[in-house]
Amino acid sequence: MSINTVTIQGGATSEVELRYLSNGTAVAQFSLAQTPRRYNKQTQQWEDGDTHYFDVTIWKHKAEAAANQITKGTQLIVTGRLEQQRWEDKQGNKRSRVQIVAEELAVLVKAQKQDGSAQAPQQGWGNSNQQQSQQQPQQGNDTWGGG
């Protein structure tokens, strides 16, 4: 048995492209950027690492929900599996790419305090069974189609 699961937190770098297959199945694609932060003990400050970019694909009703809720810049947590695609281009060169096939998406909402300043993002988990310490959406607001 092999386990192929990845969870990435980052920002959408493109608008969601929603399309439908001939059988009516929805598929959505977008790209996601993730920049790790590291604490530099010498400068005693947080610094950005190299930014990594990922192509994300999501299917069916979750694809439609993604198209309705995700825009460029939306902060997300994406959980899914890695999938490698291989093909030959028009010049005969062998090409490949690795994408994330998303199983779950969570939009991170940046709340505002009463004084107008931002506070830490709250996670809207949709259909995930997370610990009760994480904020859950209210009954009937599950746009990712769980339940």
Rank of each mutant, 00 (worst) to 15 (best):
S128R: 15
G147P: 04
K90I: 04
Q42G: 08
G126M: 11
R38H: 05
Q123I: 10
R37H: 07
N4K: 07
R19N: 06
Q112T: 10
F30C: 01
L108T: 07
R97S: 12
T74D: 14
N23P: 01
S128Y: 01
E64L: 09
S133R: 14
Q42L: 15
T13E: 15
N40H: 02
T43R: 07
D142V: 11
G80D: 08
I3C: 09
D89H: 11
T25Y: 00
I58K: 00
A118P: 09
A102E: 03
A65I: 10
V107E: 11
Q44E: 10
A118R: 11
W144N: 01
Q85E: 10
G147R: 02
G140Y: 09
D50I: 15
L32A: 05
Q9V: 01
I8Y: 00
N23Y: 00
E88T: 08
D55R: 02
D115E: 05
D55S: 09
W144K: 04
V107C: 03
Q34P: 02
Q44F: 03
R19Q: 09
N4L: 14
Q123S: 10
L108A: 04
G126Q: 06
E64A: 07
D48P: 02
Q130L: 12
R95Y: 15
V27A: 09
Q122E: 13
E64K: 11
R19T: 15
V56P: 01
Q42P: 02
G10V: 00
L18T: 02
Q135Y: 04
N68M: 15
V6N: 01
Q135P: 10
A26N: 13
L21V: 12
I8D: 00
R97A: 04
Q85H: 12
Q69Y: 14
A28L: 03
Y53P: 01
T51Q: 08
Q122K: 13
D89V: 00
P137S: 07
G147E: 06
F54L: 05
A63L: 10
G10A: 09
Q99N: 13
A26S: 14
P121Y: 11
A26G: 12
T51N: 12
T51I: 08
I8T: 01
L21R: 06
T43N: 05
G126V: 05
I70D: 00
W144E: 06
V27I: 15
N23G: 06
Q9L: 04
K94P: 04
R97D: 04
Q122S: 11
A12M: 06
G92H: 13
V98Y: 05
K62N: 07
K60E: 14
H52G: 04
T43H: 02
L82R: 03
N4S: 07
G147C: 05
G24N: 12
K90S: 10
